[in-house]
Every structure is written in structure tokens, then in C-alpha cells.
């Protein structure tokens, strides 16, 4: 059965660390990095990349449009 795998790329410079993407993610992929960007905000990253399905939820709620989403089908 084909499985859907996804990945996100976060524009670290623009992320403001509002954490709305963490709330929106159904598979609990995203966390805030302990490091900060040049503006002093913690930024989002994929803590569990293997769980990402590329559902786009995080990118839809991101106020600063920093998330780019990729999705592909993998044959098992």
C-alpha cells in the first residue's frame, strides 16, 4: 500500500515562534527550537519528520507564511 510522506521547510529568518503550527499539526511533528533567530524568536522545526504526512495544516494557519510543504507517495 502506498503511504503518504511529507516534509516541511521553515523560513527560519521570518518565523516568529507563535506556535500555532504545533497546535494545528495532527501528527505532532513540529516543535520550537531552543535556538533563536536574528529577531530573537524561537523557530519551528520538524522534531519527528517520519510522522509528517504533508497535510498542509501548519502552513494554512501560519500567519507569516514561513512554511513550505512537500508531499510524496512511497510504495511499501
Amino acid at each position: 500500500m502506498a503511504k503518504v510522506k511529507g516534509a516541511i521547510v521553515v523560513d527560519i529568518k521570518r518565523c516568529k515562534g507563535c506556535e500555532l503550527c504545533i497546535e494545528a499539526c495532527p501528527t505532532d511533528v513540529i516543535r520550537m527550537d531552543t535556538k533563536v533567530n536574528s529577531k530573537g524568536y524561537h523557530y519551528a522545526y520538524m522534531e519527528h519528520p517520519e510522522l509528517c504526512t504533508g497535510c498542509v495544516n501548519c502552513a494554512l494557519v501560519c500567519p507569516d507564511s514561513v512554511i513550505t510543504v512537500y508531499r510524496t507517495k512511497v510504495e511499501e
Binding site: 529577531k39 504533508g54 498542509v56 500567519p63 507569516d64 507564511s65 514561513v66 513550505t68
Partner: peptide, 21 residues
């Protein structure tokens, strides 16, 4: 594999709004 990216009609300027607005 790209399914979502920022639309080209938004400029690259960082928004002046508060986080989460």
C-alpha cells in the same frame, strides 16, 4: 513534491504584525 508555498503576491518583507496575529 511541492504542495504549498507562500504566494508570489505577498512580498518578501517580514510582516509587521505580532506573532500569531
Amino acid at each position: 513534491n511541492l504542495v504549498f508555498k507562500k504566494t508570489g503576491l505577498l512580498t518578501d518583507k517580514i510582516l509587521s504584525y505580532c506573532p500569531g496575529c
